[in-house]
Amino acid sequence: MNNLILTEVLDTALDIQKAYDFVANSANGAVNSFVGIVRNNHEGKSVTGLTYDLHTTLAKKAFDDICQKALELWPETKYYVAHYHGELSVGGISIIIAVSSPHRAESFEACRYIIEEIKTKAPVWKQEHYIDRKSEWLPGHSLNG
């Protein structure tokens, strides 16, 4: 998008080093990151993995828009967002967000902002797979209004 924002939808393993390398900046003294990982349980059920479904074009556009808005809220910040598309086993990385900023406070705030916005605004869906071989699409936030 520009040299301050890089967003990706990938069907290959997400790379934390790549996130760090993109946001690292000699003028910024803080890097904050969020890594989403598939866990082995949900509401008492044993989970074996997740399938992530995305509308690739609109998801990337949503990531770009969210980062752009964050950049307006916290100037002098830099952003990397990557979301996985496809099946992941327990322990797999589903999302990486990295933010750099001159000082620590805005990097924490901006990183939290990005993940919360993605959860409610980006066209991404999760299908959980359970140990009994059943699967279920998880409920979410309507994009209506």
Binding site: L58, P139, H141
Partner: peptide, 29 residues
């Protein structure tokens, strides 16, 4: 419902053939 650029409001009128997507409630991350 969305085209490849944006979500279309319920009042949007269609006048020609189109490719759309239906986007259920989301839960990324």
């Amino acid at each position: 419902l969305a085209d490849n650029d944006a979500i279309l409001p319920d009042t949007h009128i269609l006048n020609e053939d189109i490719k759309l997507s239906i986007l259920p409630p989301v839960c990324g991350g």
